[in-house]
Amino acid sequence: MIIPLSSLKIGMNGIIIRLEFEESIKERFIAMGIIPGKKITYVHESPFGDPMVFKIEDNKIMIRKNEAEKIFVDVTEEILSLEESTPGVYKIFLIKGGLFFRKELENLNIVNGSIINVINNHFGKVSLKVNNKTITFGKGRSKKILVKKLNK
């Protein structure tokens, strides 16, 4: 699936496909190492969500969001927050948030890698099934859970 670089979630990676800039700017990015065919990983988030730092091989490059929107990458797996999910089967990719939140989820048998089944998503209020138990998360909490869609 091809998405703009700006839609990557932290820790996600993709293969650079194309740069949609005018020629002169494009050449500059290429010279900095953003070359189609290379693997690129989103490694650091700034305090305000913008700009973003990406890693290509041994290289860390900071790119502002509006430029990252014009660089397209191919991602093998799509990672989204639970808040954006539609009904279907997902695997937990990452749980953001503090120790207590993760402990709480652990008690519900939700850890990194566990499989969940999203039943419905009502404007971010998500109901899901895990181990035959139905749980509902509010918008704030479902934002903190990143999931990977499983194709089944």
Binding site: I10, G11, L94, I95, K96, G97, G98, L99, N112
Partner: peptide, 10 residues
Amino acid sequence: FIGLWEDIKN
């Protein structure tokens, strides 16, 4: 203390 606390990216 934050090192103790959050470890989101594992």
